[in-house]
Write a protein that binds this DNA or RNA. Structure first.
Lengths: 115, 115
DNA sequence: ATACTATTCAACCATATGGTTGAACAGATA
DNA sequence: TATCTGTTCAACCATATGGTTGAATAGTAT
């Protein structure tokens, strides 16, 4: 298909899978090899490796070779962007909810006044 | 497939598509009918309706009938959860970065001291 | 009832995704 | 060199996703 226009596509795409979220959680606590990660899941080694590819493409993790093993580490900055993205929305909603709240309060005050 | 285990799956899945993010952005500013939303995209009406279904399943939007039209509104609470989810990670990473930062500072101090 | 507008549903298609197994490759070690 | 461990790659399969068009439905208005 077309080129990767938006980083958010792949970041949120990565996060939409529970296995990948779990991997991310695991790796965020401690860097570990591909094999170590795979050992925690019932999936085939290759399946886990694919999940790691997805996370890597989204720049949520990085790999670095240490002898025989490939060490997987989290790449903090990328998810911060996603978090910020959502944070903005959160703000927006909170504002809207505040507006609603004010509106309701005004109505209420009005009702109370016109007793 | 199996039942929807995790709300986050569908929320992040929804967010992984740029059209859906755009719809969400649009709707977060102002509730509007399905037709109004569709008019902003080159896609077929049905395609946009499908995107709305996805957003609805993820509980990111709600619809309410107003006469002939179906009015689409944002459902703030769900995305707040996703935001919080990422927020936790952000915290985790910031902590890790802080640790790294302290570590580097310590090294640096050590270097400076042993001049 | 008829027709018009807004929306949904169904069938279909192409490509993406998530999984498998088995072969190939990289690095360490006998 | 041979071999063992760790990882990647390739081929394949089933299902999901994102798009299309056309028919069906809901509500409004004539």
């Amino acid at each position: 298909m077309v080129e990767q226009i938006n980083q958010l596509d792949s970041v949120f795409g990565s996060l939409s899978d529970p296995t990948r979220r779990d991997i991310l959680k695991r790796v965020s606590k401690k860097s570990m090899s591909v094999g170590q990660i795979a050992s925690h899941y019932q999936l085939s080694f290759a399946a886990v490796a694919k999940h790691l590819k997805v996370l890597e493409r989204a720049k949520l993790i990085t790999k670095s070779r240490s002898g025989n093993e490939q060490i997987v580490s989290i790449a903090p900055s990328t998810l911060a962007e996603a978090s910020n993205y959502l944070g903005n929305y959160k703000q927006l909603w909170e504002d809207r909810l505040d507006s609603l709240d004010n509106y309701l309060r005004k109505i209420n005050k009005h009702k109370t006044r016109s007793h």
